[in-house]
Design a protein around this nucleic acid. Structure first.
Lengths: 331, 331
DNA sequence: TTGAAAGCGGTACCAT
DNA sequence: ATGGTACCGCTTTCAA
């Protein structure tokens, strides 16, 4: 069933059927009704490929993320997908993992499908050496980065000032007398590095020394983090508070503390469901996905509508105080 | 840049360029090399819409799930997306929520995009009354249901025997002397109902009475579940073990137990990351997504290759014993 | 091995 | 308000 069949059955030309389909005002009510009736009766749906070929768009946005089974990305994708749909777009999802070759390959796959734009979720897409794949992509379609920073033509970033957030946390901990702050991180993405910078900046701000052995890289696994932290404690590394680059790591740290029957402030990152699950509930940093995602989609629609939009938008994070650390009144 | 440009620049016809692009053997090596060189030099990518229009496929599979921010669905989508990509498909993601109207609407949106097949993740898509939308969809493309059961022409289901799993758990608990088992559930999807049936079947199997007030529906929120369970305890409802339809609910229950300084067996469902996060780590049921998803994709590729595949595949669940309940040796 | 040309199913311009 | 038709960029059949 195609537009020719509908035209024939309704006794009009395909041009008129097309007008009806696209809600053109230049159709008489009588004709419109007649055509619509046939369309409904035949349960006709226009061929999206043919439309795409003409209009050069199928209203599909490519979403790239490293791993959607990670609660943080899952939440981001969930928000983005919903917002895109509100705007009449579909979301083509592509999970790349952390391998650069895959990221490049998948980005090209998305572009080959002629998506209208690409949204990169997470800073894992900013490589430290070579961002040429993003640069090339941006030559074809707008590239929006959520929670990452890549400054190139036709790329737009919406992110949270995680560096400041971590620095602030160091400051808050120090203010309450915690001066040996263990910092656990997993990846060295742009975001990962920002947080480390924040950690160091926070220490400087508080005139605290940076201690090499208090900044440790751990695998992204609760059990392994737990083992690492237990190991640190058994090796008598001295620390009186823990900050992490991700809630998951903090949960591992909590398990270590529990095992060693110790207690100290712990601050996670991402305000994920894990922070509520752990016991005690984790104090964590909300990096404001609920704000970032709508902002990103606004940017996107602005860009596609050829409006002028800022290339960069920074939002400050928010500390969510649960059981593992509370700001005292005076601080 | 289109196939005509490439043809012109390489001094051949578009037919030949097309052959080169599609790896046809009927092209001389010389011609092939010449054309490929131009293609590379011009960074030409064939227009997917035009291809789609001809071949009537863009190799895109629609994925419907109710909520991808739920860890269970996130994991399923993650697996499915990766497997599809291995097979050269892209995934068009669509999160519907639980509203039937939305489910219908979004299913039609996917079909309008001419996806090659639809994968429904979760039993939430089997409505108790009206599954006509699925039936209609299946008239156009194969419909695969992961962890749900809908028996209609051109629909294929891969699911886990959750009823048996719950029943078995009741049996195991009873064997260790727990006879007043609280069952917490949230939704009454097909899966939700199966589990309830399993709970009742388990009780019958053990000659235990079904107690109305030990089967309670709760909101899908840790804090609210906790409040509910605390409330039950304060109302002196007697129970000595807890089973839930989802890990999240079990986490809430654990929080209640912690608050009331009580301890008893708790068994969650889904083997999600939440089960590892909670403290103590939750004993939970693995509904075998790692097996279900590959099986589903195998089915799908079989169907699209016009091979004969079974319409239904059932896999048994597996109890993952962590800290909140262990099977003793003799049981 | 290669090319010409007919579709695929729409959109939109130009007439009427 | 309506119709005729060129065109979007590719695949594929048929001839040569």
């Amino acid at each position: 069933m195609n537009i020719y069949d509908i035209a024939e059955r309704s006794g009009v030309s395909i041009a008129t059927v097309s007008r009806v389909l696209n809600g053109s005002p230049n159709v008489s009510a009588v004709t419109r009704d007649k055509v619509m009736e046939i369309i409904r009766a035949e349960e006709y749906t226009p061929n999206a490929f043919a439309r795409g070929l003409n209009l050069n768009t199928m209203k599909i946005i490519g979403i790239l993320c490293t791993d959607i089974s990670d609660t943080f990305y899952a939440k981001a994708v969930s928000l983005v997908e919903g917002l895109l749909r509100q705007q009449g777009f579909d979301a083509l999802l592509c999970c790349t993992g952390n391998d650069l070759e895959n990221k490049k390959k998948y980005l090209e796959l998305l572009l080959a499908k002629r998506v209208d734009a690409v949204i990169l979720i997470g800073s894992a897409f900013k490589e430290n050496v070579d961002n040429s794949h993003i640069e090339n992509a941006a030559k074809q379609v707008p590239v929006i980065i959520i929670n990452g920073l890549v400054e190139l033509p036709n790329t737009y970033c919406v992110y949270c000032d995680e560096e400041a957030a971590v620095s602030d946390n160091v400051f808050l901990l120090q203010k309450q007398g915690y001066t040996n702050i263990l910092y656990l991180y997993d990846t060295l993405t742009y975001s990962g590095c920002s947080k480390i910078n924040g950690y160091k900046a926070g220490l400087r701000r508080c005139n605290l020394p940076f201690q090499e052995n208090l900044m440790v890289q751990v695998p992204k696994s609760i059990a392994e983090v737990k083992d690492c932290v237990v190991d640190l404690m058994e090796r008598k590394i001295k620390f009186d508070a823990i900050m992490t680059s991700e809630d998951l790591l903090a949960v591992g740290a909590l398990k270590a503390l529990e095992e060693k029957k110790q207690t100290m402030p712990v601050i996670g990152f991402n305000n994920s469901i894990l922070a509520q699950c752990s016991s005690p509930a984790l104090t964590t940093v909300d990096n404001m996905l609920d704000t970032l995602c709508p902002a990103a989609i606004n940017m996107l629609t602005g860009i596609l509508a050829k409006k002028s939009v800022p290339q960069k938008m920074v939002i400050s994070a928010k500390l969510v105080q649960q059981d593992t650390f509370q700001i005292t009144k005076e601080s």
